[in-house]
């Protein structure tokens, strides 16, 4: 089961410069009762995006017409809290393909990578600059080149390398799925179990 490949992404950005955004904000628990992975995007940031009557909250960034695109530029420790992968499904279903921050919560990072959503970690100063520049000019195009591991913007002259381990990178570049990788290892896993005295 192959996924969409991630090679080069060029897009405008949506800034959300808040620290410690937890997965309960990304997708509130009351929307987790589905049994499929689809359709969570409509409730992304639900309680920041809509008031209790379901009307758009005008100044929330997803409702501001000047901002759009498939890169979310977030604050520190993004995706903390609950392990719900629904948070990643919601972000991806909404149309984002990458999230930029200076730090991600551990489980969120894994969940993102397992769904082809690229977490791009850059130094805090760079993140503040980028957020500010997007605020001043929402039309800035940011380019994320996964092969070269560089995030850049021609308009501002930004060009920053980012880290990702080569296994995860190859999976994303080739749209490979990790479950398949492990299933193909089953005979090796059985050998491992025997070495421990059986699966029991």
């Amino acid at each position: 089961m192959n996924r969409r490949k991630f090679t080069i992404l060029e897009s405008t950005c949506v800034p959300l410069p808040l620290g410690n955004v937890d997965t309960d904000q990304i997708i509130p628990a009351r929307f987790l009762s589905a049994t499929s992975r689809e359709g969570f995007g409509k409730n992304l940031f639900r309680d920041w995006r809509y008031d209790k009557n379901g009307n758009e909250i005008k100044d929330f960034v997803l409702n501001r017409p000047e901002y759009g695109g498939s890169i979310l530029v977030a604050g520190s420790n993004f995706g903390c809290g609950s392990s719900r992968e629904h948070a990643v499904w919601a972000i991806a279903d909404y149309g984002f393909r990458a999230v930029v921050s200076d730090s991600f919560a551990d489980i969120f990072r894994n969940n993102a990578l397992n769904n082809g959503l690229l977490p791009v970690e850059i130094p805090s100063g760079m993140l503040s600059d980028l957020t500010e520049q997007i605020g001043a000019n929402p039309g800035i195009i940011v380019k994320i080149d996964l092969e070269r591991q560089i995030i850049s913007a021609d308009e501002t002259g930004m060009s920053v390398p980012f880290a990702i381990n080569s296994f995860r990178k190859q999976c994303l570049l080739n749209g490979l799925d990790n479950v398949g990788f492990l299933v193909n290892m089953r005979s090796r896993i059985i050998e491992y179990e025997k070495s421990r005295g059986g699966p029991g």
Binding site: I107, N114, N165, L182
Partner: peptide
């Protein structure tokens, strides 16, 4: 430790997950 649903699928499929040592 807590995991996401893709990792739940990994464990069901192979009794293993891919995890970077913290």
């Amino acid at each position: 430790f807590g995991i996401g649903t893709s990792e739940v699928e990994m464990v069901l499929a192979s009794q293993c997950i891919l995890q970077t040592r913290p």
